[in-house]
Amino acid sequence: MADTIGIWVAALLTLFIFSFLYKDNPLYKMAEHLFIGVSAGYWVSYLYQNVFKPNLYNPLFHQGKLLLIIPLILGLMMVMRLFPKIGWISRWSIAFIVGITSGYYLITYLQTNAVDQVRASLLNFSQINNIILVVGVLSGLIYFFFSAEHRGVLGGTAKLGIWFLMVAFGASFGYTVMARISLLIGRMQFLLGDWLGLLH
């Protein structure tokens, strides 16, 4: 019974949102606002149960890990942003978070997305595909080289580079289309199958 009601509610909300395709209307606006509220509430409950309770409240108040007072304070400072007068205090916590992520990204991007990728491009030319790959990487990098005017050989190579980029963007394009269609298929499977029972 509860499941049947749930499926009907879900189906109606799905249709409300799809109604936007015809034109913007109150049913869509209702679903949209409900959605924003529900998703924010979802995150609050989740973080409370999975982070706040086991990582801060329990260890701090039940296991006596007093050092956790510091992140508690930094966390509260973050929330102070809600109050314009003392909002500046949130900069301390933001500075902490930004420091951690900057330090982290600095190293990880350099390793995984630069050095590891360069190493993987040191290929043997026994296969034609390896040659194409190396030429593609080099010419693509030339395109993003801003210290010299793209003229002559450099210009030609940059041109080749942009072609490689375009083929890559084409692949992204194709895959994005694929992804969006898949999501629509998922919704249709729900409407036609779970709700109306027309699919087998």
Partner: peptide, 19 residues
């Protein structure tokens, strides 16, 4: 092949930007 090459050029560029 070409997608990997193009993506890799972008990745290396972005990595330097992040650094």
């Amino acid at each position: 092949v070409p997608n990997t090459a193009g993506q890799r050029a972008i990745m290396i560029g972005i990595a330097l930007g992040v650094v």
